[in-house]
Design a protein around this nucleic acid. Structure first.
Length: 267
DNA sequence: TACAATGTTTTAAG
DNA sequence: CCTTAAAACATTGT
């Protein structure tokens, strides 16, 4: 499920536990979300520590704890964060539970495509520091985006937009939304855009991120009215802009929805 | 039953 | 070494 704005929403869910001590850590150590990490070290370090702050970067979540603990989470396809009562019994998919006096912070992920990372140190983990510029930041420039497109010139734009090194936070529905708002077909190759289309893509990427953050990112409400989002799931949907029948097909390895009449192939 | 699901990683091929 | 495409991952729901 979670893309940029959904991740931001879930971050705020756990913020209810800020400034409070973690009394106990419960986790399903053998589950895939803990692959390659030391769950004993995580348990040891977080037990008795205090949740200090949280941040998101694209689809990445980082929770900072006292005693130099840094908990990184990725929600994958089906992950979500929620708050439970302090002694809530962990369900089958509740793979990580941080128990505090007033509530339990719960990470559940049925499909386990998500991931848990843990780092102990004064500085933030290096994988966090190495993340590419966020789309809504100053460092995400037209020049940078253009360079990224040219490096993937022979791939369809849909696939390029899903690449987290270039467009951190963009997922399946946001990629379709960006392309629809830019008026460019998803199968158009990234190297085929002219300067005007490139600029439209850049503006659409930022506009969609901002609009999602101001709606989904606040309280999980739907994205702004008039967006493709509201029509893309049903078969038989029509384009909000010109009323043409929307098309669905697999592009760049993912189910894709677009308007064949107002989204143009490059030349 | 079989397939698809708002995602990444690994593997293989070009 | 770089880019691209496809399969794999685990579970649920249609």
């Amino acid at each position: 499920m979670p893309e940029l704005a959904e991740v931001e929403f879930y971050r705020k869910v756990w913020d209810g536990g800020i400034k409070q001590k973690v009394r106990a850590v419960e986790l399903h150590a053998s589950k895939r979300i803990f692959r390659g990490m030391d769950t004993k070290a995580l348990t040891q370090a977080l037990t008795g520590s205090v949740l200090v702050s949280s941040a998101t970067h694209g689809k990445q979540l980082l929770f900072r704890f006292s005693k130099n603990g840094w908990l990184g989470l990725h929600l994958g396809m089906s992950g979500r964060l929620r708050i439970g009562v302090p002694d809530e019994e962990a369900g089958r998919h509740d793979h990580l539970v941080l128990r505090q006096a007033r509530q339990a912070l719960i990470f559940s992920d049925p499909r386990q495509f998500g991931r848990v990372l843990f780092h102990q140190g004064v500085a933030p983990p290096k994988w966090w520091a190495a993340l590419p510029p966020q789309i809504l930041s100053e460092e995400f420039t037209l020049t940078r985006m253009t360079r990224f497109l040219s490096r993937h010139a022979r791939a369809p734009l849909k696939a390029v937009l899903l690449t987290q090194r270039g467009f951190p936070g963009i997922g399946n529905w946001m990629a379709d939304e960006v392309l629809w708002q830019a008026g460019i077909a998803p199968a158009c190759l990234a190297g085929k855009l002219d300067a005007m289309q490139t600029k439209r893509l850049f503006r659409a990427a930022r506009f969609v991120c901002r609009g999602a953050m101001r709606t989904v990112g606040i309280d999980f409400r739907d994205p702004p009215g008039g967006w493709l989002y509201h029509r893309r799931w049903r078969r038989g949907g029509i384009c909000p802009r010109d009323g043409a029948a929307l098309r669905h097909a697999e592009v760049g390895g993912r189910t894709t929805c677009w308007c064949p009449s107002c989204q143009k192939q490059g030349f």
